[in-house]
């Protein structure tokens, strides 16, 4: 019998990582949660979401298939999750949604592959 992990279990590592920056991180074990990363050095933050797809049998309440990791970078599906995992910085869900808003409103954040020069345009409240 395989039961689907709860939301709390799936986000346990992420919750601990938010308060402990030195938490152990295994290279090939991405964890569910909300993250940010840069595509280039000094580039703008990009939001990353890691979730798990669970097929649950409605009759038994158990997993009908293996859990599958899903990753979205800036809302777009990303297959190479292991390649970017070590570059992801855990953030809160609120900060994740704020990051989407900032990328929309701050012109300097529009190009993911161009380092940001904060001296060109001021950041306003």
């Amino acid at each position: 019998m395989r039961y689907a992990r709860s939301i709390e279990e799936l986000h346990q590592w992420h919750q601990e990582a938010l308060s402990n920056p030195d938490i152990e991180r295994h290279e090939i074990e991405p964890q569910c949660g909300w993250y940010k990363m840069r595509r280039v050095k000094l580039g703008p933050w990009v939001p990353v979401l890691i979730t798990v797809e669970q097929d649950i049998d409605p009759d038994t309440g158990q997993l009908a298939d293996d859990e599958r990791m899903r990753c979205e970078v800036d809302g777009i599906n990303e297959d190479k999750i292991e390649e970017i995992w070590s570059h992801l910085k855990p953030i809160s869900e609120a900060a994740f949604h704020q990051l989407f808003e900032n990328r929309r409103s701050i012109p300097a954040m529009k190009d993911d592959y161009t380092p940001i020069n904060l001296a060109l345009t001021p950041i306003t409240p």
Binding site: N102, N117, L118, A119, T121, I123, T124
Partner: peptide, 12 residues
């Protein structure tokens, strides 16, 4: 954002 503003002031 205010931290970024200060970085911008310093850079300029």
């Amino acid at each position: 954002k205010a931290t970024d503003m200060i970085a911008g002031l310093r850079g300029l």
